[in-house]
Computed example of a mutant assay.
Amino acid sequence: MTFLHWLAVLPLFAALVSDDAPTPANPGRLEHLADFPSKFVKARNVDVWLPEGYPQPGTRYAVVYMQDGQNLFDPKNAYGGVAWEVDSTLAALGPAVRPCIVVGIWNTDRRFPEYTPAKPYAAMSAAHRAQIEQERPGAPLSDAYLKFVVQELKPYVDKHFQTSPRRADTFVAGSSMGGLISLYAALEYPKVFGGAACFSTHWPLSLKENTSDFTTAMVQYLNKQLPRSGQPKLYFDHGSATLDAWYEPHQLRIDSVIRAHGYGPGNWLSRSFPGAAHNEAAWKKRVGPALQFLLRR
């Protein structure tokens, strides 16, 4: 299937994974790693989703590391009682994607500083940093968080599960602030992550003011960090309701930088979903096409 044909059938796939779609009889199983320790950040829970039939002899599985892991699988743990149902979504995709596992990294009470990209943040004016820290106290901890993911969690996953540790089979994804840290991960560790999916990326940082200061810093950062070879794969999306109503002008600026660095349909997709809000129910509907973009065969 060509990329253009795949893009044309995305709306059909969105319908396939909608709330009305049947749940696969066996969406695989979860392994829960409680209080996974780290020398870099606070310990946290980690869920590892394994597809039906895992492990298949001779198969090395791609891995998607996803932020806000408590929201991915079980409504009892998810914010607002709505989970993304990533397990059912991937089970429904079946052979349309490479065999993969999903590592859901739970957030902690340090979510905001851990998910705030440190280098672009440092490039903002002191006044704007002070304004953000009045709203959400604490300097960024994202560099330490990514050391945890890359130096501690990934080696554990590669040792204990039947993974393909290659960059081309390793991805990162998240929503809102989780979208920011996922993009930052892919660009800070380009030899580790082959792509990032960023849902409703929270470019303003603030929840009180829709300002462009951080987006301007991200544009400068992207111009330095984006490789012109067209890697990694990058997926973005946003809605137009609730907090997502802020995002379009920011995303257009980011898109212009990515386009200028030579990205095209094979390695970059930026989508708008008019009417979609900033919540788990909206991301649940969009996670399938995003994962298909990253994991297509």
Rank of each mutant, 00 (worst) to 15 (best):
residue 261 H to P: 03
residue 162 Q to T: 00
residue 157 V to M: 07
residue 267 N to L: 01
residue 246 W to E: 11
residue 131 Q to E: 15
residue 29 R to P: 01
residue 159 K to C: 03
residue 104 G to A: 08
residue 16 L to P: 09
residue 272 S to E: 12
residue 58 G to N: 15
residue 229 S to Q: 11
residue 14 A to M: 15
residue 297 R to D: 15
residue 9 V to T: 14
residue 145 Y to R: 00
residue 140 P to Q: 02
residue 254 I to H: 10
residue 138 G to K: 04
residue 170 T to L: 09
residue 249 P to T: 11
residue 236 F to G: 07
residue 77 N to Q: 12
residue 44 R to F: 05
residue 197 A to V: 09
residue 17 V to S: 14
residue 216 T to E: 13
residue 270 S to W: 09
residue 30 L to H: 07
residue 172 V to P: 01
residue 58 G to A: 15
residue 294 L to H: 06
residue 54 Y to V: 00
residue 290 A to L: 12
residue 40 F to V: 01
residue 155 P to I: 10
residue 114 E to C: 02
residue 90 L to V: 11
residue 174 G to H: 02
residue 46 V to T: 06
residue 219 V to H: 07
residue 184 Y to I: 04
residue 268 W to Y: 15
residue 162 Q to K: 02
residue 16 L to D: 14
residue 220 Q to D: 13
residue 84 W to E: 10
residue 225 Q to F: 07
residue 110 R to H: 00
residue 210 N to Y: 05
residue 12 L to S: 14
residue 161 F to G: 00
residue 55 P to M: 01
residue 36 F to K: 01
residue 266 G to K: 09
residue 54 Y to F: 05
residue 242 T to K: 09
residue 219 V to I: 15
residue 56 Q to F: 03
residue 261 H to C: 05
residue 176 S to P: 03
residue 3 F to G: 06
residue 195 G to T: 01
residue 31 E to W: 01
residue 2 T to W: 04
residue 66 M to V: 11
residue 161 F to H: 00
residue 248 E to V: 13
residue 284 K to M: 13
residue 184 Y to W: 05
residue 7 L to G: 08
residue 66 M to S: 05
residue 192 V to S: 00
residue 102 V to T: 10
residue 193 F to H: 05
residue 154 K to R: 12
residue 62 A to H: 10
residue 149 V to H: 02
residue 41 V to F: 00
residue 246 W to A: 14
residue 267 N to F: 01
residue 120 P to S: 10
residue 232 P to R: 04
residue 271 R to G: 02
residue 154 K to P: 02
residue 227 P to L: 03
residue 248 E to G: 07
residue 173 A to N: 02
residue 1 M to L: 06
residue 283 W to A: 09
residue 21 A to D: 15
residue 182 S to Y: 06
residue 290 A to N: 11
residue 239 G to V: 12
residue 216 T to M: 06
residue 41 V to S: 00
residue 44 R to E: 02
residue 263 Y to M: 04
residue 97 V to I: 14
residue 49 W to C: 06
residue 109 D to F: 00
residue 187 L to H: 06
residue 259 R to W: 06
residue 89 T to R: 11
residue 275 G to H: 13
residue 236 F to T: 09
residue 213 D to Y: 14
residue 82 V to F: 08
residue 256 S to H: 13
residue 175 S to P: 02
residue 3 F to E: 13
residue 292 Q to S: 12
